[in-house]
Design a protein around this nucleic acid. Structure first.
Lengths: 133, 133
DNA sequence: TATAAAAATGTAATAATTACAACCATGCTC
DNA sequence: GAGCATGGTTGTAATTATTACATTTTTATA
């Protein structure tokens, strides 16, 4: 709560209730929630919250380096407050999205000479160990 | 045309006109087209084509290893007849999606022990060299 | 407290995707 | 060749995610 407020202020974003709560939610729920999930969860404690606000807030966070979009091959966006370059694994059994560590800097690419790279996204799909058992 | 027909037969897929044409389109247009693009392009020569058929066909191809979904962080799916593990670069200037070579096998991951991996997807975003000039 | 700027809301529009029932084409059997 | 079954295609409607935008509310500050 207080931490998130500070974080927003340090980024020159006015810490409105909605913004603080969305950021807090992202930092407490590292499950890569969808907009829908964020909205329905927070709507309980903020009854006046609207989905548009959640969209606006997440876009603001993305543009200011407070959150990243997570894409695992579905037609809805997920969000992650972990900004570091890491991979995501989508389990086609339980549907969960896991983080995994990966050294993306070590990747050698051919064909991007002279390109300016802003973001790197890596995701795998398969079956997690829990679902395999 | 003939090649695509054979390819489909070898995969035990009946080579209907729609299927042959969609596959041919994917193999001739390595621009990672969207469903919309595939549909409008082919609708000229196949006036009875429906978008549902394009969706059905692409899903069939995906399930049979003839095409892969390409996701570059937008809310629409693109398709690629190149099945190999390679990366995609989305230019936020011109909107083009480029392929790039990358040795994905070399990636070392931490946290996926015991997981079964089916697909690996890697995409970057930034500005291509043409747009930087 | 008055006021301006910023934030949030709600509704409506857009766009991608999916569901599904009806229709059509092909090849096989009699 | 007629009938039939299977598989393929179509078109419409429904669903879902996202965006646009005008209005209202909140907030910070003078």
């Amino acid at each position: 709560m207080e931490e998130e407020k500070e974080l927003l202020e340090n980024t020159n974003i006015k810490p409105s209730i909605a913004r603080v709560k969305v950021l807090e939610y992202l930092r407490n729920n590292k499950t890569h929630p969808t907009v829908e999930e964020i909205y329905t969860s927070l709507a309980e404690e903020i009854p006046t919250l609207s989905k548009t606000t959640v969209y606006n807030t997440l876009e603001l966070f993305e543009n200011n380096g407070l959150a990243r979009i997570v894409n695992v091959g579905e037609n809805e966006s997920r969000y992650d407050a972990d900004i570091s370059n890491h991979g995501h694994f989508k389990c086609d059994g339980c549907g969960r999205v896991y983080d995994f560590r990966v050294n993306m800097e070590a990747l050698e690419t051919r064909g991007l000479e002279g390109y300016k790279i802003w973001e790197k996204h890596l995701y795998y799909r398969g079956i997690c160990s829990r679902c395999r058992d």
